[in-house]
Write a protein that binds this DNA or RNA. Structure first.
Length: 196
DNA sequence: CGCTTTTGACCAGCGC
DNA sequence: GCGCTGGTCAAAAGCG
């Protein structure tokens, strides 16, 4: 099941969209718990492979200079093409955690999603020639982790896996208060094209 | 000085 | 039990 989200916030800084492929449609999923996205993107609904993004609504698309507002390297030409899978993962103590993987076309390996992360490990894994980096959320008492690695098939893409749910708001709320907020859940809604 | 990154060591799960 | 692999720890170094 694919959901196509469009950000309703008219502010050009925050025109975002993403497809969410939910393995369990009934599970609770707050996209904005995980994402503060930058550019607009279009997602292929029909195939497993990842296709090149086609820009739409470019008049509202954030420019590269906008990226200097804390969302990444303004010179990096980051374009995001994201599909994510949400699946219930049973932890050691049988608790169900949330794990979501995003595949993002980006020259940046680590994108600013509004949370503060501390790197705690780096590992070369056999399944990929590229090293995998491990991060923990720096929030007090927050046990959310993420893994970041380059796609083994196409190093232009970055695979980011979020594991867990934040127990706090983004620490950048104060910063964002200078501009309209994205990272409230209310900015996201099912895009009409999802029905077609 | 406090926080982050680096990186080798260590640990746990899994297959044989 | 042993080896392989992925994930985490923690000491040292780096940085602002």
């Amino acid at each position: 099941m694919d959901y196509y989200f469009g950000n309703l916030n008219p502010n050009p800084y925050y025109h975002h969209s993403a497809v969410v492929n939910m393995a369990s449609p009934s599970s609770e999923f707050m996209l904005s718990d995980y994402l503060v996205l930058e550019d607009a993107l279009v997602v292929d609904h029909h195939q497993e492979s990842w296709s090149q993004s086609t820009e739409t609504e470019s008049s509202e698309k954030a420019t590269s200079s906008d990226a200097s507002h804390g969302f990444g390297d303004a010179t990096s030409n980051t374009n995001m093409h994201i599909k994510c899978q949400n699946s219930g993962i049973k932890g050691k103590n049988a608790e169900v955690s949330q794990r979501i993987t995003f595949r993002t076309r980006s020259q940046l390996e680590v994108m600013d999603d509004g949370y503060k992360w501390r790197k705690y490990g780096k590992k070369t894994v056999k399944s990929s020639p590229n090293p995998r980096n491990y991060y923990k959320c720096s929030g007090e008492g927050c046990d959310v982790k993420k893994r970041v690695e380059r796609d083994r098939d196409d190093s232009n893409y970055v695979l980011t896996t979020y594991d867990g749910v934040h127990n706090h708001q983004t620490p950048s709320t104060a910063y964002y208060s200078q501009m309209p907020l994205l990272h409230s859940n209310h900015d996201w809604a099912l895009h009409p094209s999802a029905n077609s």
